[in-house]
Simulated scan of single mutants.
Amino acid sequence: MEEEFLLVSEDGSPRAVAAAVLQHASSEDGDPDPETPGGNLEKEFAQEQVEISTRPCADLPSLLEEVRAGRWRADSSAQHAGARIAALATSPKDVEPTVVVNRRAQDIAEEFAQTARDQLTCGCHVHVSVDDDEEGVRVVDHLRRWNPVLLALSTNSPFWRGDDSGYQSFRSQVWGRWPTAGATAPFGDAATYRSTVRSLVESGTILDTGMIYFDARLSAHYPTVEVRVADVCLDPEDAVLLGALVRGLADTAVERGDEGLPPQPRAEEVRVAGWRAARSGLTGDLVSPTTGRPVAAGTAVDELVRHVTPALERNGDLTWVREHLEALLRRGNGAQQQRRWRQEGADDAELARRAVRATLG
């Protein structure tokens, strides 16, 4: 699991101190082990943010421990640079992001102009292992109809440029401006996936395969499918819940495929469902993953859980998922909590303080 965080000051303003944070983390942790992915603090596109990744885990308690430990390590290094980390998918306070000092990042900033200048956004990326690219494409295709529900569960970006955006996830709207971002048509097999990626790169519109920003993609570095649709989660347990559901969907894709489901929806239908999830999150209707009709958010979530229940049972995750899903729905996700804090009178500084506390669990 990879999580991106804002670096914030006491008054809630994002601070461009990523270089100092990473330097401290490197002095504390030493060089990363090239044989073991994850566990490191890394740069992101803007100097006002950092990314932490967990090591591979096979059970939810281990993943939760990794997520919490990673957040604490990142915050410790941030404090040495006069900042804190906050799991907010967009900044509640207006800010002009500072692109990191990196040739590729600078090239992206020049080529993509305002789209790149707006990209101070924080997501959560879940990697799940697959045997090969053929299995990976089956997982990517299977995820399509369910990705909007994963987004709805994770929504955590209601504010943009100092105002309430009216969306539960405005990050997804900003992120969707990249030319390759969002939902795709079904690929069917690995050859079609690879030829599609090759065509996008050869179009000259994107710099390289690192700019393939599909909601779910084959990882360029690991034998995994990387699910990129979610906002970073305010609560560490919500992040682990997201991981459990992604693994359940991947297992279901391999074991049963689309058995018992209607035909794959068109890309246009998935995009509409994604927009609906971004707009209302868990506070209104979503598009049903199975019927394509409006249903209450809780109903769409129930559809997902029922679909992956056999896989969750086999993994020993079902009880944990049900308990923590109930807690999330009762408490509200990050977007709901942020709006509630505003209604209680929290200014930018207080909202940032509460977000830091929630981030660290």
Rank of each mutant, 00 (worst) to 15 (best):
A244Y: 07
F45T: 07
E135S: 15
A297N: 04
F45E: 05
R55F: 06
Y167D: 06
D215R: 08
T290I: 14
L151W: 03
G334M: 04
A105T: 12
G176D: 09
V201W: 09
W160V: 04
G281H: 07
A181T: 11
A327N: 04
P14W: 01
E135T: 15
Q168F: 07
D238E: 15
F45L: 14
T180G: 14
D189F: 06
V301W: 08
T196V: 13
L360R: 05
V227W: 07
P32R: 13
E237T: 15
L286N: 04
T290N: 13
W275V: 09
P158L: 02
A191D: 13
V229R: 08
T54L: 12
A300C: 08
A349T: 07
K93W: 06
E28V: 15
A109H: 12
R144V: 12
L261H: 05
V137Y: 07
L200H: 10
L41Y: 00
Y222T: 14
E350W: 01
A239D: 02
A20V: 09
A16E: 12
A69L: 12
Q168W: 05
R145G: 05
D347A: 02
L88Q: 01
R339I: 01
A352E: 01
S91W: 07
G243P: 07
R198H: 15
T90L: 02
H324G: 01
R144P: 09
R171E: 04
A116W: 04
L242W: 05
S165N: 09
E269I: 00
D11Y: 06
G136D: 11
V126H: 04
A81R: 10
C233G: 01
P263Y: 07
D94E: 00
A244N: 07
C122T: 02
G82A: 02
E303A: 11
R340N: 03
S288M: 14
T319S: 09
L351P: 00
R104V: 09
R217E: 00
Q336F: 00
